[in-house]
């Protein structure tokens, strides 16, 4: 089944096209990486899909239904690139996650919501159980990222959007994070749309890649699509791909 279909999406600001005629589809259960230079419209694309940015023309469908948040039946998870929040906010990790769990009203109801996810177990999945009672403002970049991942999956989404989730995190943290994404994809059949600048990550973790530079430059499997010419057309003539074949070193 198609998890996501985008058709002729155009985003324009002050007469300037940020995205032009973007059309692609993503099969359920795939990890798709979106690649492109700064200013290519990667974040704009994800925000337009999620309805956070207005788009002039085009349509977005999730699992066969036109997607409009607020009345959507499709559960969606999102980890933004740069999370703007007040670091002095006295909010603990467990409070943050509990606020994400429906219903969005707080009236004691007789045992109808006993299927609420257990926050401790959820944090265990992302390797952040020990952060449960910590204030979110006190978390490091990597810790916050894992908590935001837990927040994104708390309602068991069918599709996850990750906007450069590993930016500002060390290499070990990045590896752990992408391993987590791969595991969730494998165990839960989660469709993942991931923005990344790191070709290594794209090759190792993504099933498919979309190259973007205001327009869609390429789509396909990374090993077939990311040729030297494609990299140059996405990033410019100064860039290129060096494909290192794996072999034993003496």
């Amino acid at each position: 089944m198609e998890a996501l279909r985008v058709e002729n999406l155009c985003v324009k600001v002050n007469g300037r096209h940020l995205l032009e005629n973007i059309s692609f589809s993503v099969e359920e259960g795939r990890i798709v990486a979106i690649l492109g230079p700064n200013g290519a419209g990667k974040t704009t694309l994800i925000k337009a899909i999620l309805g956070l940015t207005y788009y002039e023309t085009g349509s977005v469908s999730l699992f066969g239904r036109l997607f409009k948040h607020n009345n959507s039946q499709t559960r969606v998870g999102y980890v933004p690139q740069k999370l703007e929040f007040d670091r002095t906010f006295p909010l603990t990790v467990s409070e943050l996650l509990s606020f994400t769990i429906p219903p969005f009203y707080t009236i004691p109801l007789p045992a109808t919501h006993q299927n609420k996810p257990d926050i401790g177990s959820l944090l265990e999945v992302v390797g952040a159980r020990d952060l449960m009672n910590r204030r979110i403002g006190s978390l490091s970049g990597g810790e916050l990222q894992r908590v935001m991942m837990a927040k994104a999956i708390v309602n068991d989404p069918r599709i996850l959007f990750l906007d450069e989730p590993a930016s500002g995190v060390d290499i070990e943290g990045q590896e752990r994070f992408h391993d987590l994404v791969k595991r969730l994809n494998r165990e839960r059949g989660l469709t993942v749309i991931l923005i990344s600048h790191d070709l290594n990550i794209v090759y190792r973790f993504a099933d498919d890649v979309l190259c973007l530079n205001r327009r869609l430059v390429c789509t396909g499997k990374p090993e077939e699509t990311l040729t030297d010419d494609v990299i140059k057309s996405v990033y410019g003539e100064m860039m290129g791909a060096y494909i290192h074949s794996c072999h034993d070193h003496d």
Binding site: K47, L50, G51, L52, H69, N70, V76, Y78, P80, L83, E84, F85, F89, L91, L96, F99, T100, K151, N155
Partner: peptide, 9 residues
């Protein structure tokens, strides 16, 4: 906390 995340949720 964050209105974009709230909207998506």
């Amino acid at each position: 906390f964050n209105s974009d995340l709230a909207r998506v949720e």
